[in-house]
Design a protein around this nucleic acid. Structure first.
Lengths: 344, 344
DNA sequence: CTGAAAGCGCTTACAG
DNA sequence: CTGAAAGCGCTTACAG
């Protein structure tokens, strides 16, 4: 493993000159530059990022903190972010909070110990992050979820509007009792969607019916099974994310309910299988790639000390109409669960 | 941002003593330890991982190099690996090769510049990685895919056996013309599955029919559409991964083919939606969590310089029988594509 | 245009 | 049980 000094000796120059050539900063004569480059080549020299980071007090790395790496939403986000950052010579360190505030602190500490150039954070439920803490982290952008009363830059989608549109789609088909399955209570994503849902219901003079979940498939499946079991008057469901959408379909299965015959469904975060499903699912398509790209660009500006312009970005989601919403049928009797997934 | 020296001054000891207390190595008196800990607390000191890494010439980080972060297989792998490594105080740096050999080199260089403690690698297609290169990287485990003639530790699944079992499941139902849709030609995963598939076909005196793909949904969809279009005698399909399974379903849709009425399908890498699909998909369930756990443990042993025992691990996949395989119906006529996804 | 000196924050030998 | 010295690999001022 050769070092700058080895290259310097080999080229007959000083270490700083090697550094200057490699960073392309300052003046270097063509002759020296050529000598250095030849030595770099000859020795197969690769700069040690740790040495660079220590001296420059910043690692060319960005911490991406998400709540669940196996949720496809975050995998897509990761890839989109990586594309933009990679072009800027920045790497990504992906950390998982499991939506636990304590884990979030630990992971943030861990990432911070590498002194990354910046952070892209999806705050965990009940996050205890404060403005000061985030300030201390340096450049930082909140993605998808925001934190109340904290003026940090954010990039989110227009969930309120699109959830209202989704709800109205069900109401237009004739549904009167629509269940909104949300994520964790208190997160900005749940609350903003609740707003849109409630606005549509109120405008139609209907009573909202809300179910919070932990955003995972299995919990959603059990909760939706129970809700539809005890409230057979529900004929429409708006899901929260891909796992919850799968949970809803699992619940329909457990109760022997057909979709859209017995109950209509609007999926969230359109996934490839939703188009192929029978029925093809009407779903909200979130612009995940755009979200990631915008967040990454905003962060890059912040890191470079450039004026980023608007620091509170909203990218539009939209509703894709397919065939999982139909007019409600005859009112259901009490449904009893068929098999796995539900304990009364 | 306080440093060891700040803590040392505050506690009235030397920097090395602080270091010893924090690392829990060497002898330190109870009194000194208490003083140091109090100062750490008082100053809110957090060690700088970059400083540690530079001096100890190893970063407490592992590079995980995969081919496509948005493939759920790798997301699950990431989480499983992170669990084991996190418990050992190791972080993960996730890098994407997009299954491109040149990108693989670049990403590996990049990761290596941080001098991680080890690497977990899913080699890209046509990977130019050599034994020497991997040696130079330090501790290294190949996951899921192997490289021919390279004695590096590996953790894979028993693809040959399970693909043979999947093929036999179709033959048992009466199929004679079964299409095996594989991934990239030449990867160990494609070739090992081809082996299992061919073994089953040969044993039944049948002619193999193989289609290589780039393992993505859209390409698989187009290729399978074309294959089923030109060869209406095919009545069974074995898919390669989740994206290819979706591609197959898309192809059936494009050709107006029902499953399992017109064509039977065996999915690969069981995903939650496959159970809920109509028909519920018979699929190969890969032990991704186990794969990640074993690979991570093996790497941890290697890093610690412990004897890892067996360095070529095979974890078992198994076939989950559901309802996408049925007896072949009457032979199909030439199918013409219905809509999007296929250009003759 | 180039170099000698210093130091980023930590830990590794080496003394005592 | 504890400390003075040195150095991991690089880049940042500062001279010339």
């Amino acid at each position: 493993m050769s070092t700058v000094n080895a290259v310097a000796t080999h080229a007959g120059v000083s270490a700083q000159t090697v550094s200057r050539v490699l960073r392309g900063s300052g003046y270097v004569s063509e002759a020296t530059r050529a000598k250095v480059l030849a030595s770099v080549e000859a020795l197969g020299y690769r700069p040690n990022a740790v040495g660079q980071a220590l001296r420059s007090t910043r690692t060319k790395m960005v911490g991406l903190i998400v709540s669940d790496v196996t949720n496809p939403f975050y995998a897509r986000l990761h890839r989109a972010v990586e594309r933009v950052l990679g072009a800027e010579g920045l790497s990504l360190m992906l950390l998982n909070t499991g939506d636990d505030a304590a884990t979030e602190q630990v992971q943030l500490d861990l990432a911070h110990s590498y002194r990354p150039s910046g952070f892209l954070i999806v705050p965990a439920v009940g996050s205890t992050l404060t403005a000061e803490r985030l300030q201390g982290l340096g450049a930082c952008v909140l993605v998808s979820r925001t934190l109340p009363g904290i003026g940090v830059p954010t990039v989110v989608t227009n969930e309120t509007d699109v959830t209202r549109a989704a709800t109205e789609e069900l109401l237009r088909a004739g549904h009167r009792d629509v269940l909104a399955v949300l994520g964790f209570a208190g997160t900005s994503t749940s609350e903003r969607r609740k707003e849109g849902y409630c606005a549509a219901m109120r405008a139609a003079g209907l009573r909202p019916r809300i179910q919070y979940t932990d955003q995972t498939r299995l919990t959603a499946r059990a909760m939706i099974t129970e809700a539809l079991h005890t409230s057979p008057e529900v004929t429409g469901v708006v899901a929260f994310n891909e796992p919850v959408t799968l949970g809803a379909l699992g619940a329909f299965h457990d109760l022997g309910l057909s979709c859209p015959g017995d109950v209509s469904l609007i999926g969230f975060t359109d996934a490839p299988w939703m188009e192929l499903f029978r029925p093809p699912l009407t779903a909200v398509s979130q612009p995940v790639e755009e979200l990631g790209k915008r967040a990454a660009r905003l962060l890059v500006d912040l890191i470079a000390g450039r004026d980023p312009g608007d620091t509170h970005l909203v990218v539009p989601s939209h509703l894709i109409i397919r065939r999982s919403v139909a007019a409600p049928g005859t009112p259901r009797r009490t449904n009893s669960p068929r098999e796995n997934g539900f304990r009364p």
